[in-house]
Every structure is written in C-alpha cells, then in structure tokens.
Nucleic acid binder design. Structure first.
Length: 480
RNA sequence: CGGGGCGUGGCGCAGUUCGGUAGCGCACCUGCUUUGGGAGCAGGGGGCCGCCGGUUCAAAUCCGGCCGCCCCGACCA
C-alpha cells in the first residue's frame, strides 16, 4: 500500500483526493470550487485534447473561438435554457470601474452566443452544414464541487453544428457520440454505455440528449461525454434561418456536444488502484520511465550510458520516455514515485541486468515483483511498442470486466432498492416511467436513470416502477 | 442552503478537558555513508496556533462573533 493514499475500498472519495494530490494532478485554488491543474494533470488533458481534436477534424469540423462574456439577455432567449442554467450563472455586473448597462454572463456553455453569430453567417442552404468546435473554459456555479468532476470553472470542448434537416442533425449528434465512444474505449481504455437521456436528465434546451456513461471504481456512474440534438430551439430563439432551394426560409437544425476535464477524473476513478494512478499508455504523459540502478564497482557510467541510449532510441520512436536521473533518491523511492503517477512501463537497468544483457520491465498494471520480466537490451525498440499496446488492451479489458461484474438485472423496485444499497453498480431494468417515477427513484435510492442504451434487445418486460409492459431497458445507477 | 466533522510549519497530526515561553512524524536544507521496492546517522531552517473581539498578570487552550475547508444531501459536463 502506498503511503499517504487511503485504501479505495475503505473510503473512495478520500482515495480519489489522495491520488490527485500524490500524483500531482491538481491543487486547490483560493476560490472555492476552482482548481489548479498541475503540469502532470494538464499533460493528461493535452493527450485527450490532441486525440479528440484530430477526430473532430477528421469528421469535418473546424475550430473557432467565441468570447467568454455573453450578454445576459442572450441566455434568456431560450426558455428551457434559462431555466436550466440561471441558478448556476456567474454574472459580471461591473467593468472598468463602472456598473454595466447590461450584466454579462460568464459562459456556462456557448449555444446562445454561437447562435447569435450563426444567424449572421448562415443565409443559404449552401452555407450548411456549419461544423464548428471550440476548446474553451466555462463557468458553472455548482453547489458541490469535486476536483475534475465538477469544478466551478472547467475546460472542455464544445462542438456546435447547424444543418438543413432534422435527419442530418440527428445523424451528426449520433456520429459525435460514436466519436466519444471510440475515444473513451480506444484511448482512455474506459468502456462506456452509449445511450439517450430521459426527459428529466437531458440538456436544458435540447430535444434529445445522448450520453456515454462509464462506471467508476466505486460502482457509480460518470457521464463522460454528451451530444445533443437541439432541434430548432435555438434557431427559433435567435432566428437562425436559411433559404432552401425553393427560396423558402427554414430554421436550421442544430447539435452541440462536449467532453470536459471531467474525463481526467474518470480516468483516475476507472483505472486507479491502491497504489495510485494507472494511466492507459495512449493518455500517459510518460509512457516509459527508465530507472537506472547504480552499481557498486564502476559500472555506473556504463549503466548511465545504456540508459541514455535507450531513452534516446525510444524518444526517436515517439515513445514518451523519461530517464530518472535524480541523485540521492533510492531506486525504491523512484519506483513508488512513478507508480503513484501511473506510468505504464517502468524499466530498471542495474548491474544484474547488465550482466545478463537485459533490462527489467515492470508494467504498472501488474504491480510488484511478480509482474516483472526481462527482455534483451537490443530488443527494447522492438518490444516496447508491443508492450504498450498490450497494456492498453489489458486495461480496457480489465475495466470492462469490472463493469460487467458489477452490472445486475433487476425485476422490481423493492429488489432494486435493497440491492443498490448493498452493491453499487449498473442496474439493467425495464422502464416505462416518467419524470415522477424518476423523482421517486432518486428520492428513495439516490440512483437515477443514467441512460436508455442505444442498443436494445427488442424484447419486452415489465417496468420496475409502473408494472406496465415495455420494450425499453434503462441503466440505473448512482451518479457523480 | 440543511446535517455532520475540522481549522496548529509544505503535508498528516498531538497539545485544548484542567490557561503558564508550541511539539511529533513525513517533507525541506547541509555533510558523510548508501542505492534491485518509499535508506541511515549527525547537524539545521521554517509556525499572525483561521480571523476579530472579550476575560486574565498570562490564551492554541476559556467566552462571544465571524470566515474558511472537508464529508453527506438537494444541483450538475
């Protein structure tokens, strides 16, 4: 057990905070609810950003940047949107030493300001589709902040698109959900359940909201990405119209979609263990760390030379490699240091290895002495990429097995109530309830309908709340 | 905002009941010896005891007020 890290079985919330502190991912800010993302934590976000940005561009989107401040009146234009966001707005009332004529809202999301511009830029069906994305910070004055999961200010990406038809916009919303799904599984090694949100859980101003739900180490759900079909709600509020081929004015159909720094919290809580963080190789700022172990009798310079050579070779292959040259720190200390930080592969090079012409590898997902193996020095360049890929695969598989082993079927509400209190996890249930049933569900169990999975069996069953026959199954869970 | 807990060097805590010159572990600095799973010894630096006020010869400690943080709930990417 790592020092200074609470056992996750004992106190998961505390463990989470311990890992963030010990791995130097973030620090608390002087303003409640805000956090400082430290270089190592930010580097993980950069990996996320880099990969997603490429995927957005591959699907035809361009980046732009819209301002932080939004006239308050903009937020008020879409009824549901105001209702949803009003309680959590940060509002600027003074600027330049004067009270402002109209207060400015610090964006909680950018649908309104973007529609303001879209209405200007879009005139003809030839201007469509308009496919934009922006990387930005947003502010939501949440009641209960948690590092990465729900901070007052957070970093995210918000895609905003406008289309000629409903069908096209709906296709786009689902396409981006698919992008998120693939990213989560292929890069973050987080298995997710893509689904649709219920009326109660959907985004304020959307017609339909989609989500990917992931299971954290304590069995709770984390909404890890969302995509919305906005219909013509914002188009009507902002008069975002175009002329179709028949010279008729039409409202655009829109989507918006986003993932945030919350994903970093997801990575911590899906993969982390009692020794700290575990990072999937594709997200790891450092994929391989080399710990040289100085020998007693003059072998030191040779060990250093080989360590440097291997580092340079790996770097030239774009393997993110760090050589830990710190002096006066024991190898054991270094092992723990990098383990807490979740580096996927540790490479030890010492006198014993030299003697045998090998290096010792210790994969983070197979901790301790048992997980160690050796490979010949001259096979490092060939083996390391394979090993990183293997770890990436294994981590996804482990996470999936964990999720599946904590996914249960429930047939009636009483059974569910008792079960989720004992065993937090995902509960598969037939569902035909409405907002009232959802409210009751939450009140009595703290769980919510996380999503209506896109994949449905086509069979029918009895709703656990209403008893009515239905062909819809949902995932019930407690959520962050 | 409700319920619970807590504010003492960077971190974790003791000391508060019963007032009397602020302590421990880790971290940090220097030196020597070490280095294959969080090294050892020696020396050293660092504290408006959350803030304001009161009681007292004397307050981390008692009294009053305020502020902040954490956990649980309502809200949520």
């Amino acid at each position: 057990m790592a020092r200074n890290i609470t056992n996750p079985e004992k106190d998961f919330a505390r463990w989470y905070q311990d890992v963030i502190r010990e791995a130097e991912l973030a620090d608390s800010a002087p303003v409640r609810g805000c956090m400082i993302i430290r270089p190592y934590g930010y580097a993980i976000w950069e990996r996320i950003k880099e990969d997603l940005d490429r995927r957005f561009k591959e699907t035809g989107h361009s980046n732009a940047y819209f301002p932080l401040f939004i006239p308050q009146s903009f937020i008020n234009k879409e009824a549901e949107h105001v209702e949803g966001f009003a309680p959590e707005l940060a509002v600027v009332t003074h600027g330049g030493g004067k009270e402002l004529d109209e207060p400015l809202v610090v964006r909680p999301t950018s649908e309104t300001i973007i529609n303001h511009m879209f209405s200007k830029w879009i005139n003809s069906y030839r201007d469509l589709p308009m496919l934009l994305n922006q990387w930005a910070n947003v502010v939501r004055w949440e009641m209960r902040p948690r590092a990465f999961l729900r901070t007052t200010e957070f970093l995210w990406q918000e895609g905003h698109t406008a289309h000629a038809t409903e069908e096209e916009a709906r296709t786009e919303a689902l396409r981006m959900l698919k992008v998120y799904t693939k990213f989560a599984e292929e890069v973050a090694a987080i298995p997710v359940i893509p689904g649709r949100k219920t009326e109660r859980e959907k985004f304020a101003g959307a017609v339909d909201s989609y989500t990917i739900e992931a299971m954290m180490g304590n069995g709770w759900a984390l909404q890890s990405g969302t995509s919305h079909y906005l219909g013509t709600n914002f188009a009507k509020a902002f008069n975002t119209v175009y002329l179709d081929g028949n010279n008729r004015q039409q409202y655009v159909h829109q989507t918006s979609w986003g993932v945030s720094t919350r994903l970093v919290g997801g990575v911590i809580m899906v993969h982390g263990d009692e020794n700290g963080l575990r990072l999937p190789p594709k997200l790891a700022p450092v994929q391989v760390v080399i710990v040289p172990i100085p020998g007693g009798n003059g072998e030191e310079s040779r060990i250093m030379e080989i360590s440097r050579r291997i580092r340079d070779e790996l770097l030239s292959m774009n393997v993110r490699t760090e050589l830990d040259l710190r002096e006066g720190v024991s190898p054991g200390f270094k092992f723990n240091h990098w383990e807490i930080r979740g580096v996927p592969v540790r490479m030890e090079i010492g006198p014993r290895d030299l003697e045998n012409g090998v290096v010792t590898l210790s994969p983070r997902n197979r901790p301790g002495r048992e997980g160690k193996s050796t490979i010949p020095i001259d096979s490092v360049a060939e083996k390391i990429p394979e090993i990183l890929q293997r770890i990436q695969r294994e981590m996804l598989r482990e996470a999936r097995e964990k999720m599946e082993s904590r996914t249960y079927e429930v047939k009636d509400f009483g059974e569910f109530k008792a079960s989720i209190a004992e065993k937090p996890g995902f509960y598969d249930a037939w569902w035909d309830g409405g907002p009232e049933e959802e409210a009751r569900l939450q009140e009595e169990t703290k769980a919510t309908v996380r999503c209506i999975p896109l994949e449905q069996s086509g069979e029918t069953g009895k709703c656990i709340m209403t008893g009515r026959k239905t062909n819809t199954k949902v995932i019930l869970a407690r959520a962050y």
